[in-house]
Design a protein around this nucleic acid. Structure first.
Lengths: 218, 218
DNA sequence: ATAAAAATTTAGACTGGTCTAAATTTTTTT
DNA sequence: AAAAAAATTTAGACCAGTCTAAATTTTTAT
């Protein structure tokens, strides 16, 4: 059986692999897990012995098939619990990450499958991230960033790239919720901020920083 | 903050304290936690330094107020999750203990209180054990064992003393569910088994072993 | 192409939690 | 009240996971 900590490393390696080409570096893992590079090195050796990662010294790291399977299992649990916390317990989408970080390590397959059924097989978590299948497949999503949309295009907000409570609360305050329809009206050549119309109603200015963290439908 | 393991020791000390007079012994803790007495001794020293238990070498152990507060918090979480697993996810009462052992260590007060509300403030877990209050009080229950009921008395099954899946499944198979009304018809002088009538319907023989593990209303 | 900088790994130490074996204390038996 | 038995604690070791400091390797800059 795998430890809490091992699961966290696998999950983190998976996330980082998706954000860059090629192998994941020791330093980036240290930063993500809030530990020191030396500790990461030790752990990589262990994970490598357990055949959960491909690891050549100084050359970065990549999940094995088994490692990816496990990582996706953890991510599936995390995202299902997030749905539960928001849909059933009424938490805000900015509050659930920390709690789900704990719940994701409860290791009962039966529990996860029953939870999935109870939630009526959700496809996405409250941040619009796809929920891996029980078989360990990550559904693909083809979203663009709002910052890449052209003037006059009409798109729907489907997810966020940034997950910090601060960002999510900012979206709440400005009324940018998942599912909103957005029509892009203007792009500033000065600061790349965009003007959009939300749900055929109010018009809004969105900074480039915000726009490039909003995922929208094709 | 307290570790997983510390929480388990506190919980176990609480349980054992309720089952005997006086202090809890090192050996009984070792048996309950499936560790060795030496390991328990080490841990008791640590818990004592943290002021969570009263501990004098060779003299057994007792929770401090703070220790009891923490133990009850863990038990509250455990029992609320058991209600969730049975009521919402449809698990059997014989299946939930192991999963709740993990869920009980998720340390968010907000989560527990929201879960409590979501479950509509249950008073008892699926085995009839009372759920400690948010303030850290264990509700008192005044139950007898079915083995102590006299002939012709009419009582209601309120809980179980034994929690093993085997025992609970036995009750399921024989139709002895919590809430059933039981009328005691006869007590065998030979083996102390009892004959009862369930819900004014069928009559049933119950062994002494089973009867002394069934809790009934006064 | 070499020196400097950055990234990574190794060495050695610490903590929490466990173990076995040996020592000590308490309880029970005679 | 002593001897034997049982319970408990101590000593010393180990593992997982972390750290700092030092050594090594790779990358970048000159």
């Amino acid at each position: 059986m795998h430890t809490f900590t091992e699961e966290n490393y696998l999950k983190t390696i998976y996330y980082l692999s998706g954000r860059q080409e090629g192998e994941v570096s020791t330093n980036s893992l240290a930063e993500m897990t809030a530990t020191r590079a030396a500790s990461v090195s030790d752990m990589l050796k262990r994970l490598s012995e357990k055949q959960l990662i491909h690891y050549k010294k100084y050359q970065g790291v990549r999940l094995t098939e088994e490692g990816e399977r496990l990582a996706l299992k953890v991510i599936r649990r995390h995202r299902l619990w997030e749905v539960f916390l928001v849909e059933k317990l009424g938490f805000g989408w900015d509050e659930v990450h920390v709690i789900a970080e704990e719940l994701e390590h409860v290791r009962s397959d039966e529990l996860v499958e029953r939870l999935d059924a109870y939630l009526e097989y959700p496809q996405f978590d409250p941040h619009g991230d796809p929920i891996p299948t029980p078989a360990g497949q990550m559904p693909t999503t083809a979203y663009r960033k709002l910052s890449e949309v052209a003037v006059d295009e009409r798109v729907r907000i489907m997810g966020v790239l940034e997950h910090s409570p601060e960002f999510l609360q900012h979206l709440d305050r400005t009324g940018l919720t998942l599912g909103s329809e957005v029509c892009l009206q203007e792009i500033s050549h000065f600061d790349k901020s965009v003007q959009v119309q939300i749900n055929q109603e109010k018009s809004l200015f969105i900074s480039h920083e915000v726009a490039r963290n909003l995922l929208v439908s094709r």
